[in-house]
């Protein structure tokens, strides 16, 4: 089976073109990237430098924030244990429930009647999101607080020159 001459020529031309395309696409024959040979432009350098500076600044900020967070956490966590409160029936429950949110400083510096302590439990639940305290546990907690932290003369009014 033979092709007409014109088709042979056409086929030859297509093959030649294909070879040329292949030849031109060989890696070694590709036009080299200018960037690989020429130094980076001033703008590119500036961008790269700015990126590096921003990354460094960000890393510094993150490190500073982390260090500061650790310092603040240390101050906010006095590492209290139950024995910071006076010995008594109910101490364990009071310590566990109250220190879920706050340190004992505010307890130890407060002094209320049993009625006021009892009201405070409702306030903590309604305003501060404490789990409701009911029944025997509530009695235990309020009795302990009322016994050990009753109303008293305010320490800040104490005379600095007397015992």
């Amino acid at each position: 089976m033979s092709l007409p001459a014109v088709e042979k020529v056409a086929l030859g031309a297509i093959c030649a073109l294909g070879l040329l395309v292949l030849f031109l696409d060989l890696p070694a024959s590709r036009v080299p990237h200018r960037a690989e040979v020429l130094p980076p432009t001033r703008a590119a350098l500036a961008t790269a430098e700015a990126d590096a500076r921003a990354a460094l600044a960000r890393a510094e900020r993150e490190a500073a924030a982390k260090a500061e967070g650790e310092r603040l956490a240390a101050v906010q966590n006095p590492g209290e244990t139950e024995d910071i409160l006076p010995v008594g029936h109910g101490r364990e429950e009071v310590f566990a429930r109250c220190t879920a949110c706050h340190s004992t400083a505010i307890i130890r510096r407060s002094g209320f009647s049993r009625e006021r302590w009892d009201e405070l439990m409702d306030w903590m639940t309604e305003k501060q999101g404490m789990a409701p305290l009911e029944g025997e546990v509530r009695t235990l907690v309020v009795d302990y607080l009322a016994e050990h932290f009753p109303p008293r003369r305010n320490p800040r009014n104490a005379n600095p020159f007397l015992n």
Partner: peptide, 24 residues
């Protein structure tokens, strides 16, 4: 001179010796 529940001092970088009323 402060009796029960007296007030310790804040010890913290960047802060003066304030009267510590509570940690958390």
């Amino acid at each position: 001179a402060q009796p029960a529940g007296g007030t310790p001092t804040l010890r913290m970088e960047g802060k003066a010796a304030l009267i510590l009323l509570g940690e958390r």
